[in-house]
């Protein structure tokens, strides 16, 4: 099912990130995602996240699809030129994948193969436009595709915490014009800032899913504040997590995430959970959030 049809149903759409392993044993990943089936609308499979070599998004998306779990395939511009990207879009269609999330991608220098050539033949806006054209039966060179064109629901990302915010909004508008039908955001911890962002983009009339990252420790929060663009975990949240003994940290972390979800779901159209290995805790978070 296309994700856009879930938004049209008017419910708070829930997606969860799925990071393929570094190696071919994917049984554990599937086992962790399986219990989320009743609650999560779609599983967003990353494309060599953080520029680290892993199993690819396409293969995992297909396996999820075979198991009846709805995948969203992430597609970045980091490693493929326009021929390879368009071909992978067609591959995805052939393998029954209906949702694509189009991103620029991290620079290879940040990952485990810093020597790799950064491709970026296209950027995220041009990629969206290229996929949109494929759905109309045309490739980037203007040639016709044979037969029935592929169909996709296209997603994109935006960072509501970026400073300055304006360039992000300008680019978001271009992404919508290029074909983006929904957005997911970087992790949100500051409600007021996020509400301000939603006010600025409301007139675009495109569904936005707020990003949630489960905080595993106060150190992780501090690390993200120092190193991850556009994420700011306020001191109150860090202190709240640090105030409980270590054996109660997990519970506290889930409580914080659940509270954020309760508050955020009224401000936007969905929630995208990036659990970073804590998939097993997602059902508890959703239960605590009343979802």
């Amino acid at each position: 099912m296309k994700l856009i049809d879930r938004f049209k149903q008017g419910k708070c759409v829930l997606t969860c990130e799925a990071g393929p392993p570094k190696g071919i044993e994917i049984a554990q990943l599937i086992a962790e995602l399986e219990p989320l089936r009743p609650k999560i609308d779609a599983f967003n499979v990353t494309d060599l996240q953080s520029s680290v070599l892993r199993v690819g998004s396409l293969a995992v998306c297909r396996i999820l699809s075979e198991k009846g779990l709805e995948p969203v395939m992430q597609l970045t511009c980091r490693d493929r030129n326009r021929l390879a990207l368009q071909s992978d879009v067609l591959n995805a269609a052939v393998l029954g994948i209906k949702n694509l999330l189009c991103l620029t991608g991290d620079h290879p220098k940040l990952g485990d193969h810093p020597q790799a050539m950064p491709v970026f033949d296209l950027d995220s806006v041009q990629l969206l436009s290229a996929v949109k054209n494929l759905t109309k039966g045309k490739d980037m060179a203007g040639n016709d595709l044979e037969g029935r064109p592929p169909e996709f629901c296209l997603g994109a990302v935006v960072n509501p915490g970026a400073d300055p915010l304006e360039p992000q909004i300008l680019k978001m508008e271009k992404k919508i014009q290029a074909g983006a039908e929904f957005f997911q955001t970087q992790a949100v911890y500051e409600l007021k800032k996020f509400a301000g962002f939603m006010g600025r983009v409301k007139h675009f009339n495109v569904p936005v899913m707020a990003g949630i990252v489960l905080l595993k420790s106060p150190a992780m929060a501090k690390f993200m504040n120092a190193n991850v663009a556009g994420i700011h975990v306020p001191d109150e949240i860090i202190n709240e997590l640090a105030s409980v003994p270590k054996d109660k940290r997990v519970h506290k972390s889930l409580e914080i995430a659940a509270r954020l979800i309760r508050e955020l779901k009224g401000l936007c159209q969905g929630i995208h959970i990036m659990s970073l290995g804590w998939e097993r805790h997602i059902p508890t978070v959703l239960e605590m959030a009343g979802l």
Binding site: H107, D123, S124, V125, Q126, V158, A162, P167, K171, A229
Partner: peptide, 14 residues
């Protein structure tokens, strides 16, 4: 731009 992007910033700037 390290990625040579043509349609605006990538969101990775800190």
């Amino acid at each position: 731009c390290a990625k040579g992007l043509l349609n605006g910033p990538c969101g990775g700037a800190q």
